[in-house]
Amino acid sequence: MIRSDRRTWPLAISLAMLAGYVDAIGFQHLGGYFVSFMSGNGTMLAVHLVRPGTMGGGAAMLAALLGLFVAGVMAGTLIRLAVPHGGQAAVLILVAVLLALAGLASWLAWGMAVAMGAANATFERDGEVSIGVTYMTGTLVKIGQHLAQAVAGGARWRWLPYLLLWSGFMAGAALGAWAYPAWGMAALGVATGGAMLAAAAAWRSRPVF
Rank of each mutant, 00 (worst) to 15 (best):
A119M: 15
I131D: 05
V129W: 01
L81T: 05
Q88D: 13
L98F: 08
M136F: 09
A75N: 04
T122N: 02
P84E: 08
A118F: 05
H85F: 11
A118E: 00
A113Y: 08
A119Y: 07
G111M: 10
M74P: 00
G111P: 06
W110P: 04
L65T: 08
A75M: 15
L81Q: 15
V73M: 14
A71Y: 05
A64P: 00
V114I: 15
L101A: 15
V133I: 14
G76I: 09
A100G: 15
G117E: 09
L98I: 08
G72N: 13
E124R: 11
V95F: 02
T139L: 03
G127C: 10
S106P: 06
A89G: 04
A115W: 08
G87M: 09
I131N: 08
L65M: 12
L92R: 03
M112I: 05
V114R: 05
I131F: 14
L101D: 01
V73S: 12
V95Y: 00
Q88A: 14
L104D: 00
L101T: 03
L98Q: 09
V133A: 07
L68G: 03
V97M: 10
V95N: 07
H85N: 14
V70Y: 03
T137K: 02
G87Y: 08
G117V: 04
L104N: 01
L81F: 09
G117D: 07
E128F: 12
G103V: 08
A119G: 05
V83A: 15
G117Q: 10
I93D: 04
L104H: 13
Y135E: 07
A90Y: 08
Q88E: 13
T122A: 06
E124L: 15
L68M: 14
F123Q: 07
V95W: 00
A89D: 03
T134M: 11
F123K: 03
A113W: 09
A113K: 11
L78A: 15
A89Q: 03
L66H: 01
L65E: 07
W110M: 12
E124W: 01
A64N: 04
F69A: 05
A82H: 11
F123E: 10
L65A: 12
L92N: 04
L98R: 06
S130M: 05
V95E: 15
E124D: 00
D126T: 02
L81S: 13
T137G: 06
G103T: 08
A121C: 09
A115E: 03
V70P: 00
D126N: 10
G86D: 07
T122W: 10
A105D: 15
T137D: 03
L62I: 08
V83L: 14
Y135A: 14
M116H: 02
V91K: 09
H85V: 05
L108V: 05
G72I: 09
L94Y: 01
L108Q: 00
A118N: 02
I79A: 04
V83E: 13
L68I: 08
G117A: 03
L65F: 01
V70M: 10
Y135G: 07
A100V: 01
A75G: 12
V97T: 04
L101M: 15
G67C: 07
A115K: 07
A90K: 10
T77Q: 10
G72L: 12
